[in-house]
Each structure stands twice: as structure tokens, then as C-alpha cells.
Design a protein around this nucleic acid. Structure first.
Length: 192
DNA sequence: GGTAAGATCAGC
DNA sequence: CTGATCTTACCA
């Protein structure tokens, strides 16, 4: 089926709704890298103690307060990048963390990117199944913070190719200590 | 100026 | 389960 860029309006709503509907969509990156989004988490800004935006705007999280449909990328644990899709209207912080994709194409390039600096081989099964892993695989770093996913100004876009997903599995978020009980993680089962 | 925690990952 | 690795935010 034909690929259609998700419009800006897709991202203007509540991160929890955007997260649920983002499952099954295609993350299209540079060098032909494409992945189907199968795991995401919603972060609800001022309403969410686990959100980087819970206590207001800082230099790091400023992108989250900007217009929706942009990428919010942050650096953490001294070595990893994580990528989010900015939601809600400009001025209201909220985002969806991209936690996992299934490679659709450009797998060779993903392997190369993931293998860099590593001595032992990276198994395909764990190529893009984590927020920092998919950033590595797609070559996403701080230079992509603020990238427009609708215009594709930095080669990153999100498409809908009409593929249907099964009902998402909903669980508490991974790796958070505050708001740990909130069921804001959405995981796709098999994608057809 | 000091420091604790962090939306993680890989290896044992 | 632990080590790696360092930025950020918060407190004094």
C-alpha cells in the first residue's frame, strides 16, 4: 500500500493517544533505513512526574515545548541517545518515546551503525529493540533534536502505509521510578 | 561548586 | 546483577 506522511495534526493530541496510534507506523530515516514502530511510551509533560518536562522548560527539553511533529532527542547515561515524537500544541510539553521498531529495510546500514565500536557481533534479534538501540541503528543523535518529522528536514519522517496492527498490549513504562505504575507503554503484537 | 540520579545497554 | 560513562538538574 502507498506510504503517506503523517500530517502535523496527527501529533497535536494527547501523547497517550498518539502513542497508541503510532504503533505500526513506519519510521523512515536516512540511507534507506526504515523500521516499523512496535513499542512506544507516552510522557505527559506537566501531568507526568516521569517526564523531563514535569518541572518546566530547560535547555535540554525545550524541543518538547515546541510545535508537534518534531523529534525530541536527549542524551542519557553518559552514552546513549533516545528519541521522542513531540505531541500537543506548541507551548504544551508532551512526547512519545520510541522504544522499539522492527527493521523493514536498510537493515545492512542498521547493522553497520550498531556494530560500530563494538567487538562482539550484534545479533539481529536485538538490533532495534530498545530506545537507545534504535537511535544507534538509525544514526540518531543530538543533531536530530528538533528535526521536523512532517517536512523531513533532517531525513527523518514517519509514514502510514496502511498496515493494520493488532490490539496493543498496554503496560507500565520501563525504567522509570516516578509514575512507575501508570500504564502508558504500548507494545504491538505481531504486525500484519 | 558538589552531587545524585538517570525514559540504557551489554556482559557475566 | 553490575559496570560503563557523563550530563543535567537541583541544592547549598
Amino acid at each position: 500500500m502507498r506510504r503517506r506522511i503523517l500530517p502535523r495534526s496527527f501529533y497535536e493530541g494527547d501523547p497517550r493517544e498518539v502513542a497508541a496510534t503510532l504503533l505500526g507506523k513506519l519510521l523512515v530515516g536516512r540511507d534507506g533505513r526504515v523500521g516499523r514502530i512496535v513499542e512506544v511510551e507516552a510522557y505527559c509533560g506537566a501531568d507526568d512526574p516521569a517526564s523531563h518536562a514535569y518541572r518546566g522548560m530547560t535547555p535540554r527539553n525545550a524541543t518538547m515545548f515546541g510545535p508537534p511533529g518534531h523529534l525530541y532527542v536527549y542524551f542519557t547515561y553518559g552514552m546513549h541517545f533516545c528519541a521522542n515524537v513531540v505531541c500537543w500544541p506548541q507551548g504544551v510539553a508532551g512526547a512519545v518515546l520510541l522504544r522499539g521498531v522492527i527493521p523493514v529495510s536498510g537493515v545492512d546500514q542498521m547493522r553497520v551503525s550498531r556494530q560500530a565500536w563494538r567487538a562482539t557481533p550484534v545479533r539481529d534479534a536485538v538490533l532495534t529493540d530498545g530506545p537507545a538501540k534504535l537511535c544507534q541503528a538509525f544514526g540518531i543523535d543530538l543533531a536530530d533534536d528538533g528535526a521536523d518529522l512532517v517536512k523531513g528536514d533532517r531525513g527523518m519522517r514517519v509514514f502510514d502505509d496502511g498496515v493494520s496492527t493488532v490490539r496493543p498490549t498496554i503496560t507500565p513504562r520501563v525504567g522509570v521510578t516516578k509514575g512507575a505504575q501508570l500504564p502508558w507503554r504500548f507494545h504491538a503484537g505481531p504486525v500484519m
